[in-house]
Amino acid sequence: MAPGRHLAQRLPLIVPVVPYQLFHEKDVTLVCIISAATGAALYACFYFAGIYFTLVEGFDAGKAGLQLLFYVPGIGVGVYTAIVMCNVYPRQTIWPLLIGTIVETGSIGALSWAIRARQRTAVNVLMGVAGFGTGIRFMPENLHLTGMYRDKIAVILSLLSFAGPFGGTIALTVMGSVFQNKMAAYFISSEGSSRFDVNSPTALNAISDLSLEDLERFRSAAANAISWSFISILPFLALSILAALMLGNVWICKDKKAMKATSPSDPTVNTDVALQDQTQSVQRDGRPDVLTGIYLYAVLRGTPASQRHLGPLEERLDRHEEKKDSRESASL
C-alpha cells in the first residue's frame, strides 16, 4: 500500500489508516514515546498504588480507592498549567512536554522509595506530583503534532489515542511480572496450598488473620515488591525524557493572520485548501510556526529563529496562493 507500489496503483482510493511514512517524521515517534510513558505512569499509579494501600496499609477496597483521588488534583493543576503555557506564555509546546516528562519520571522514582519506606503521606503527595506531570502533557502532546502536521490530524490523534493505553498495558505487564516474582513465596502454587490465592475474594481476610509478626513480614515484603514494580518502569520513563530532549517545537501564533478566502466552487481548489477549512480549530489564533529539528540543540547554537518556519500544510497553501496569483496576473 506504499505510494507507487502495486496495490496503491490498483486501488488508488484506498489509503492506510496509519501511513508508514509518518514514522519517518522524528517528532511523531518521539511524541508517541512520550504519550506511551504518560499512559504507563497513569496506569501504574492507579493500579499499584491501590495494591499498596490494600496489602501494606491494610485499607479496605473502598478506602484504598479513595486514596487514589490524590492523583486527580495533580492532573487538574497540570492541565491548567498546560492551558496557560500553550495559550498565554510562552505559547510553545516543548516546555510543558519537557517539564511534565521530568516531573513524572522523578516523582515515580521517589514514589518507589516512599512505598518501600511505607511513608503514607509521602505516597499521597508524590501521587499528586505524578498527576501534575501527567496532566501537563495531555493537551501539548496533541497540539505539538497537529501543529506540525495539520494535514494528518485524524491519523495523529488516532496514534496518540493508541500510544497512551499501549504504554499503560506494557507497564502493567512488566510491573505485574515483577510483583508476582517478588511475592512468589506468599502466593499459592501447584506445589502447596498454604500460601495465599490472590484471585480469591477471601485472600485479604486470610492475610488479616496472620499473627502480628507474620503480618508485618508480609507487609514489608509487599512494600518491597511494589517498590520494585515501580522501579521496573523507570527505564521506560527515562527514555521518554530523552525523547522530550530531542523534540522540535511548535509556536502557537497569537495574532490572527488574514487568509485569502477561496470559494468552494473555484475549480482551482485542491485537497490542501479543503484541509485548510477543516483545521480552523487547530489554528484559531493563526498559523503555527514549527521547528522540526532538535529545539534545545538549536537554542544552544542560537539558531531557533532561523530554523523556525511554517508547517508543511501552510507552505503548500502559500505555494497554491502564489500560483493562483500568478495565473490571475497572467490573465490580466
Rank of each mutant, 00 (worst) to 15 (best):
Y297W: 02
L11D: 08
V174I: 15
F132W: 12
I241C: 15
S265G: 05
Q307D: 14
I75M: 12
L210I: 09
D214E: 14
P288H: 03
K324S: 09
V77K: 04
F179P: 08
G147N: 10
K260F: 11
L247R: 03
D272L: 03
W113M: 13
A171I: 11
S107Y: 02
D318L: 15
A185S: 15
I108W: 00
L310M: 05
T81D: 02
A82M: 00
F59C: 02
Y297E: 07
G109S: 10
Y47F: 12
F179A: 07
L30H: 09
S193N: 12
E191V: 08
P267R: 06
A2M: 11
S331L: 06
A117L: 14
M85Y: 05
V17F: 15
L204Y: 09
R137H: 07
Y71C: 09
P304I: 05
S189K: 07
D60N: 12
L11R: 14
F23W: 09
L69R: 00
M246Y: 11
G74N: 05
V125F: 14
L242I: 15
P304H: 01
Y71L: 14
K257D: 12
G62N: 08
M175T: 10
E321Q: 14
G311V: 02
I226N: 02
R308D: 01
S240N: 04
V125H: 06
I241F: 10
V17R: 13
S208M: 06
F162L: 15
S331T: 03
K257E: 15
V174S: 06
M148C: 13
R195D: 04
W95V: 12
E104G: 09
V125S: 00
A298H: 09
F166V: 11
I136L: 08
S331F: 07
I294H: 02
G168C: 12
K182A: 06
I51N: 08
L234M: 11
R91C: 10
V273E: 13
S331E: 08
A223K: 03
S240Q: 04
D277V: 06
D272R: 04
H309P: 06
I156V: 15
F236I: 07
V18T: 13
A185D: 14
F138A: 04
Y89N: 09
W95K: 05
V77C: 08
I108T: 02
F218I: 03
M246V: 01
K257N: 07
Q307H: 12
L98I: 09
P288M: 06
G302S: 00
F53V: 00
V273D: 05
G286D: 00
H6K: 10
T279A: 10
E191H: 03
S189Q: 02
I226V: 12
R217F: 01
E315Q: 15
D272G: 05
M127T: 10
M85S: 03
V198M: 05
I51D: 05
M259T: 14
A44L: 08
A203L: 00
H144K: 11
T303Q: 11
A130F: 01
S306T: 14
G176Y: 11
R120D: 13
